[in-house]
Simulated assay, not measured.
Amino acid sequence: MIVNETQIKVRYAETDQMGVVYHANYLVWMEIGRTNLIEDLGFKYAELEEYGILAPVLDIHASYKMSCKYGETVTVKTWLDHYDGLRIRYGYEIYKETGELAFTGTSSHVCVKKDTFRPVSIRRTHPEWHEAYLKALKK
């Protein structure tokens, strides 16, 4: 399985008055990790959009274990958790710089045509992405 590790320096704007990261920012960090994982696989999400394909979120699961704080550097680990040619689920773990697990989560997506929002099979439209996703799951 291929795992992307992305380092993020917690910015002041991501925190509340107590210096604790606001919960929705973890979702932003998930997106950063997901985008970086796609690039590790040799692709860019913008390429799908150029072909008129989007990958909206179907479902998000988030479990907050420990607070991250302003000034820390966190590590976002992202991997493919499930892929069936149509639906994709990514897994995430976010670690504090001490190595403590702060967050776990998943996001589920489906590829759709931009103009109709009807699901499309990546297996058919982008076989190179399909093969890379299958390979990433096996390693």
Rank of each mutant, 00 (worst) to 15 (best):
N4R: 10
E5F: 07
Q7G: 10
Q7R: 12
I8A: 06
K9W: 03
R11A: 05
R11C: 03
E14V: 09
D16L: 00
D16V: 14
D16Y: 00
Q17G: 09
Q17N: 04
V20W: 02
V21F: 04
V21M: 01
H23T: 15
L27V: 14
V28L: 11
V28S: 11
W29I: 10
W29K: 01
M30G: 01
I32L: 03
I32Q: 05
G33W: 03
R34P: 07
T35K: 00
L37F: 12
L37Y: 03
L41N: 08
L41A: 08
L41I: 15
L41R: 05
G42L: 08
G42P: 03
K44V: 08
K44N: 13
K44I: 00
Y45K: 05
Y45A: 00
A46I: 11
E47A: 14
E49G: 03
G52P: 01
L54C: 07
A55T: 12
A55G: 14
P56S: 07
P56K: 00
L58E: 08
D59T: 13
D59P: 00
D59Y: 12
D59S: 14
D59I: 07
H61P: 04
Y64Q: 12
Y64A: 12
Y64V: 13
M66D: 10
M66N: 14
S67V: 15
Y70L: 09
E72P: 01
E72W: 02
E72S: 11
E72A: 03
V74G: 09
K77D: 07
W79K: 11
W79V: 13
L80M: 13
L80S: 11
D81L: 14
H82D: 06
Y83S: 06
D84W: 06
D84P: 12
G85D: 03
L86M: 14
L86Y: 13
I88V: 15
Y90Q: 09
G91L: 03
E93W: 07
I94W: 00
I94K: 10
Y95P: 06
Y95G: 02
E97L: 03
T98G: 07
T98N: 06
T98M: 02
G99D: 09
E100M: 06
E100W: 00
E100N: 13
L101W: 01
L101Q: 05
L101N: 07
A102Y: 06
F103C: 08
T104H: 02
G105T: 11
G105Q: 11
T106E: 02
T106Q: 04
T106W: 01
S107W: 07
S108N: 12
H109N: 01
H109F: 03
H109M: 01
V110T: 15
C111L: 13
C111K: 04
V112Q: 01
D115I: 13
F117D: 04
S121D: 05
I122Q: 01
R124Y: 13
R124N: 14
R124L: 12
T125D: 08
P127Y: 10
E131R: 11
Y133P: 04
L134T: 13
L134M: 15
K135N: 15
A136Q: 12
K138M: 15
